[in-house]
Amino acid sequence: MAKAVVTWGIVSLMLMPLLYGTLAQAEAIGGFVVPTSKAAQLDRCVEPTEAMRRYHMDLIRHQRDTTVYGGIRGTKHSMSGCVDCHAGHDASGEPIPVAAPGQFCQACHHYAAIKLNCFDCHATVPKGEAWNQEPEPTAPEANWMMNLLDLHLPRGRVTP
């Protein structure tokens, strides 16, 4: 028994630097917010940035089950919320997929060597969020305008 404790103690001690290393790494990174995303205009995420970096997967996963089984929608940890706020936009105002190379979710995950399959199914740009109708195709100018206007409108989903 005592021996086992000692062994585990040694093992954990040996693992400590490793563990610390990953944490330190997660803290060290940052600046992934894409300048052309809505997030760039705001100063805080849905939770303190520090917590987001470390625990966003747990938050999303919890949200996932409450939404799918409980029908609870539009709370602040929703996947669609992340995409909506963090998707960048190209010169013509078109949203860029968050999972595209260099974009918010992808850039950091690539850095951390994590592969997600969430975007097999989940939309990577805010599209068809409201129900009933897909937005009519609009001219690029209108789109650009829309995005500009968007930023100043109250947001149903994320504002408390």
């Binding site: 409980g70 609870i72 937005p135 609009t138 305008m145 409108l153």
Partner: peptide
Amino acid sequence: AVGAAATVGFSSTIVSAEGRKTPV
């Protein structure tokens, strides 16, 4: 007719009603 004003109305971020807060 879909003008600029309408596009604002359609804009993707606006979800018309608050979502559920309690489980079904």
